[in-house]
Design a protein around this nucleic acid. Structure first.
Lengths: 243, 243
DNA sequence: GAACCAAATATGTACAAACATAGTGATTTA
DNA sequence: TAAATCACTATGTTTGTACATATTTGGTTC
């Protein structure tokens, strides 16, 4: 890996350092608890001060990607698949940041008549067709999550979009819809036959189930999303402060 | 508001400054877009360097509580962050609020030597005994959650407390410790024999597992908590808004 | 009065230096 | 041999300093 920054660039050095560190985090060379180079050496190699380097490190520590320990060193946080609330990174962006390679197993688009619950949430009639998106994603070894999304007609999605791009990108860039608010319900359940077959596991095996309601800037419903995560392949993290 | 830090305290100045800033953030005086004092003045008032003050400011900016603007100043961000809705209610308070009658099945207090993980989190040695609290609770028909809590020696808990009172009450009222920050990890797993027997279910049946790290006002660890919820008896809700 | 310019103000970036403290491992001591 | 000590390493804390850059403000000129 090339360890050098462009001191002539108008991009601040600590931002450049942060980018570089993100690449290091995704590098298998530093996985499995192996330590990063120490701050002083790394700062010297990059020809920046330790303070500036720490500025970059702090940001990544705060994001939970790095773990520092006094007297020992800095290592990449365990690449357990996790999702931080109030973190608006998309699934693939987040996995990428952690250097977890993602494989898309299935992607299926259809137009369906919504069930009662969904029609109710979207505040539409059950005879108005809506877009349904099913996705099976996971590691190269096998799938670990099955997503189902339903979209409000208001989104304008045609079903012809390239759903390999992050969803929130598509909505924002192409349809000017910003996902502002998300309400989620997380629970555990046993896999039924359908889910078990999708996730290549046994019926009855534990599943982390996430129901997600997404709203736009005007608090209007735009997406209804179900996620079935294979147990132990996914951890949901929440941070909350009294105030 | 008293603007002074204790330079003799072993608590780092940037942590003290952070605490003070949190109080300022909560102060109506600085709400509604009014600017905080500028960095240089504030640093002078607190008798710390601007760098140290910025260390504290940065943390709050990362958390989305403060917004800085070059050439203008720093103001408190418009409220509305993540998920504190039902989060700070105690278990029994929450169930009460939902009209669910609660039965306490077991309550067991013991002093144990901490495992590596816990000692590490508490930053203590594994040969220092800590208080462990186990609780089995649920509906009158049967238990649905098994809690295990470990407490940092700093809490001062003796094990003689009346644990039928809400925990956070005991800590706050009797020991002047406020649970400020909580980090949680939620995942699904299969019940092992022990958990299954406690929850009166089958080994292998799905469990919602919640690991909780609780910190005090100075971000010092005070509690490590594990919760095993029978599937479908518990739903975790999160609300998050893009900042 | 409008346009322009310059000073004042506040945050942003960056460095060098020093000392503190936690963890590790080797060396010395009881 | 086991415990105590010490040196070493890496991060943690803190200061002082300097210059850069965005924004606002007030004065000057046309």
């Amino acid at each position: 890996m090339k360890l050098a920054l462009n001191h002539k660039s108008p991009i601040p050095l600590h931002i450049q350092a942060e980018e570089l560190l993100r690449k290091m985090i995704a590098d298998p060379q530093f996985q499995n608890g192996k330590l990063l180079p120490n701050e002083i050496d790394l700062a010297n190699q990059l020809a920046i001060s330790r303070t500036t380097l720490r500025q970059a490190l702090n940001k990544l520590v705060y994001e939970g990607l790095l773990i520092r320990k006094k007297g020992v060193g800095t290592k990449v946080a365990d690449a357990m698949i996790s999702s931080k609330s109030a973190n608006w990174l998309s699934f693939s962006q987040e996995m990428k940041a952690r250097g977890i390679p993602i494989k898309n197993f299935e992607l299926h688009v259809s137009w369906i008549y919504p069930e009662e619950v969904i029609a109710n949430f979207f505040n539409i009639k059950t005879d108005q067709k809506i877009l349904k998106l099913e996705r099976l994603r996971g590691k190269p070894e096998g799938p670990f999550v099955y997503f189902v999304s339903y979209f409000h007609p208001r989104t304008g999605l045609t079903g012809e979009e390239d759903f390999k791009r992050p969803l929130y990108d598509i909505l924002q860039a192409d349809y000017n819809i910003i996902s502002e608010l998300s309400k989620e319900e997380i629970s555990a359940k046993a896999a039924d036959k359908f889910i078990a077959s999708k996730l290549e596991t046994e019926p009855g095996s534990p599943i982390l189930f996430r129901k997600r309601f997404v709203f736009d800037q005007a608090d209007r419903p735009i997406e209804y999303n179900l996620g079935y995560y294979k147990a132990d392949s996914f951890i949901y993290t929440v941070e909350s402060r009294r105030s």
